[in-house]
Design a protein around this nucleic acid. Sequence first.
DNA 1: CGTAGTCTTGAGTATCCTCAACGAGGGTGG
DNA 2: CCACCCTCGTTGAGGATACTCAAGACTACG
Lengths: 205, 205
Amino acid sequence: MEALAATTPCYRGQEIYRSEDPADRWYRIVCGMARKCAVMADGRRQILDFLLPDDYFGFTAGEVHHCAVEAVQESTVIASYPRRRMEMLADADPQVGRRIRELAFEASSRMQRRILILGRTSAVEKVSSFLLEMAERSSDESGEAVGLPMSRYDIADYLALSTETVSRALAALKHRAAISLTSVHSVRIVDRDALEEASEDGGPF
Amino acid sequence: MEALAATTPCYRGQEIYRSEDPADRWYRIVCGMARKCAVMADGRRQILDFLLPDDYFGFTAGEVHHCAVEAVQESTVIASYPRRRMEMLADADPQVGRRIRELAFEASSRMQRRILILGRTSAVEKVSSFLLEMAERSSDESGEAVGLPMSRYDIADYLALSTETVSRALAALKHRAAISLTSVHSVRIVDRDALEEASEDGGPF
DNA sequence: CGTAGTCTTGAGTATCCTCAACGAGGGTGG
DNA sequence: CCACCCTCGTTGAGGATACTCAAGACTACG
């Protein structure tokens, strides 16, 4: 598989593909971060997923993409695979075919987890769940410090909230001593139990 | 594929599988309707998907299911396929393997559409989008009558709203002459343009 | 060091949720 | 066949939450 891969460095904000582009390649994040987004008729943007290292994306049954993917960080590196040749490879090699199926199932599971987060009612619940998700996925484990390279606006579009509400929810969690903001784009989980509790019942105070 | 299928009739509310059950079969709705749901720690329920005829489900990369599936309608019929043997079949027959991949990609796309609906901000937008989605998926085209066999509570858990708000949104759409309620569980789309406008459409897919 | 963009905080308003009561079907048993 | 009950659906009033608008603080970058 990797023999067919092409790696591309991307600058901050670069579009890896756009909505309606032909879906003739599959992709994987090598390092950095990207966002999968859709723009609605009225101009509002919705972020469907943040893509982290080793996440695959660009899979579709049809011939075109239905959303865009853009690099979030400077120096994000993308590996891409020619779709037709990968499909031929999957047809020829059951092991590859099985791996692709698993990747597709995982993508589906990730979307389901997203729905569970969006289904949470309060803003604090959403933001807490988001932080726990990012902590688990980035799996730095470096003292529970979680990098949030995306903007607050990105987070808001991801959680279907306003930027102000995201800010306020972070402030509330900080006030509860569940997290601390080491910098604007780096959160440290101080009290994981408190954060998990906030992600479940989120009730104020 | 179909040679290995077992078909099972289900009564209303019957569990096809539960959360944490071993994931050793794949499924397809033959007729009727089912709901995929997750229960959170505090007892609240979230409906991740409504499953309509010819929808496949039960795919997962892991060994257990992470949510439950229950029949919504009386006399829902489910076809199920032994996972191991299907995987062997997919390994042996590239055509089958390709089909399974496509089904997985489609499941992922459906989840993405769900996220776009949940990301909509107002209740009327959510309900309008939901009705349009159901109309498209059931594809009756019988005078634009859409069957809603699930309860209002189910719809509420699907859209992350309260039952009362779902009722009010339906009443509002009725008042705008976008829909009419032929019965409690059947909606007729009177003015599709008005409904699409209410959903602030433009979402891709 | 200055500027532009991002982030935070505040005040007021709109929306949705909670609580509550009432009405409509669908079964069941008398 | 009717009365009854139980669930589900609708409607209303009040309160909580998040959004909008606005201004100030901070950061990144030239």
